[in-house]
């Protein structure tokens, strides 16, 4: 139970970071933290007490293994996260190129 609670804390830290921070890079870090909290939670969902890793070996039979599906899905989600993060960083650098600042209170050409 504690693990799930810590997951929630991590997620909240990420969301707090997104909402409160003014620096573009810190916002990106906040998104990454929140994303990893979700991934961690997904991996925990597949956990089974006393389970072992779901790797098939020739020598022994496995009886109590953890659910492998969430791990595969988390891997996919991490790949997507990588693409999104690369995109975010690229845009942030270009914004820095144009505006000369990472402060979102100074990046305000759009309004209304």
């Amino acid at each position: 139970m504690l693990l799930y609670f810590l997951c929630l804390v991590l997620f909240s830290i990420g969301i707090f970071c997104i909402l409160r921070k003014r620096n573009l890079i810190k916002i990106i870090i906040g998104i990454i933290i929140a994303e990893y909290a979700v991934h961690l939670f997904f991996a925990l969902v597949g956990y089974r007490a006393e389970g072992r890793s779901p790797i098939f070996t020739p020598s022994e039979n496995i009886f109590n293994m953890v659910d492998p599906l969430p791990q595969a899905l988390v891997l996919t989600a991490i790949v997507i996260g990588l693409a999104v993060t690369a995109m975010m960083v690229a845009i942030a650098i270009r914004i820095y190129d144009k505006y000369g600042t990472f402060d979102i209170t100074k990046i305000r050409k759009l309004h209304g």
């Binding site: 573009l24 998104i31 759009l110």
Partner: peptide, 16 residues
């Protein structure tokens, strides 16, 4: 400038 700013805003909200 405007396009990058809009894209970043869209990106952050959509990712959340």
């Amino acid at each position: 400038e405007e396009e990058l700013e809009a894209s970043f805003k869209y990106l952050i909200m959509s990712t959340v």
